[in-house]
Amino acid sequence: MSYELHRPRSLDEALALLERHEDAHVMAGATAMVLLMRQGLVRPERVVSLRDAGMSGIRREADGTLWIGATTTIRDAETSDAVRAHCAALAETFGRVATVRVRCQATIGGNLAHADPAQDPPPMLIAIGAEAELARAGGARRRIAVEDLLVDQFATAIDPGELLVGVRVPPPAPGTRATYVKFLPKTEDDYATVSVAAAVRVADGRIADARIALGSVGATAIRARKTEQALRGAAPQQIADAAAIVRDEIDAIDDLRGSAAYKREMARVWTERAVRSLMA
């Protein structure tokens, strides 16, 4: 490892650096970057640290949107009253990431930009319709749904020169309940065999709307649109059949935490459990 480190003191300074050096790697909390560099998977010549760029912070905007700045630590998001008031399940999901020590260092934006398919926040952010906000020098900004941000294992739709500056979570539709469950056959701080985030709106004893996303069962966190479709209008006794569809929507491969076939079955089981828990 031998790189030039930049420590911009503002977002504008950071964006100017990324415009000038499109090959620069961005580092926030550094938990993932240090590991990637140690393993030789990333050999940067230039690193931009966002530590002092003033990009952290959580606020609720006038239209009810929750904004989480990219360098906000996962711990700050987990313990934020604003996050909990907006969506308690989101705060709880942040609280399920690794260990408290890692959550004190790792950031919301770094987690998303890292695009590891086993991470906890992406499925929940997808289930509640969150968007990432990307900026570049000169003031141009664009928003992209988190499900479109994550394009492949460790790959995102962030273009060269662009920086993920924060996450926007829309106000949940009235009556929507959400949950995040993960199947951890080994230890609590391990990556999951499968994880499921579900956001469901119930009306008259049936599911009026559902959004489902899964982690650890594909190259990215995966939104299960066919399962969602089958869940819409479902009565409690129809949930099992709808959840079975998820087996064919995911793209699991064998890994240390389960074979592809096992993961498909566990995706079905945990999707059903997640949805049922929201009907109770």
Partner: peptide, 27 residues
Amino acid sequence: CRVGICGTCTVLVDGRPMTSCLFPAVH
């Protein structure tokens, strides 16, 4: 472990526990 798992390198930075084997000194 030097990979952030074991916690034996834990220190407090501004009162918060950090994994010093994953923590760039410049930070």
